[in-house]
Amino acid sequence: MPTQDVNELFDAEFLRQLESLRLLSRKLINGRQKAERRSSKKGTSVEFAEYRRFNHGDDWRHIDWNAYARWRQLVFKLYEEEEDLHVHLLLDCTLSMDWGEPSKFDRARQILAGLAYLALANLDRAGVVPLGNSRHPVWHPSRGRGKFLALLRHLAACEVDPTHQSLAKIVRSWTDTRPRRGLTILISDLWGSDEHDAIRALDQLRHSRQEIAVLQIIHPSELTVEGRGDYELIDQETRQARKILLDPATRKAFEAKVADYGKTLISYCRRHGIPFLQVDCGDDPAGILKNILMQGGFIR
């Protein structure tokens, strides 16, 4: 059962480890200055972007007089606008995340808190989106480390949603809000309603022109199955039942299917340049975050 105790979920040791991870992240991004990210918006920085025809109402100070002298036309200079990065942390709140000991959901929230801390420490804007839990409010992207403790309380109060929803559908419901472009990190087990559901969800994110990173969190007991004989398997999320005769052949086929599914996800992410990391929820969260930093793509 996922906990809602903020002190239990984010203990002092974990917070200390976050601070050391922050230093590590500073080394990795190698001294970048604040807001040193180019935006596709045209703005008022010193970096030239392109020309366009001068229209009525444009600021005449940006007319390129040299070009006028050459072409006898008024052209207007556009510059790259530099702005701070929006990091959208998407947390899967479907019931399948409530699995294992420690719970996948708890571990996901700890990792998410770590990523948010690193983003805030880099003076980025970090937001938290509880996918599938419409009752829990979205933490809109905001900046400043001073908001981290409030963010932790917000995360601790977040629960899994008992209603079954398609992964693609809940991602779609977020992208429909037209979030600002930025880095979107999806933390989920990626167990969809069917084998293509997770791919469809990632497509949704891709098509909304987000930079995507995917963190798949799983429990070892989900990769295989113990026992022998007749079983009635109950889906944690949908409460649907399947009668199964468990024997070595069935177990082998099941493990092959799980492995194939993982390969499909990895292949998709590689094809589209999406950083992908599969983590074991039994691992130490600080260790997982360190792996994330070393993997690259999750922190800019």
Binding site: K104, L233, I234, D235, R242, Y261
Partner: peptide
């Protein structure tokens, strides 16, 4: 049959 909860039936299906 013995009842056994699983996180998903995706792969069994």
């Amino acid at each position: 049959p013995r009842r056994k909860p699983v996180s998903t039936l995706l792969f069994w299906d």
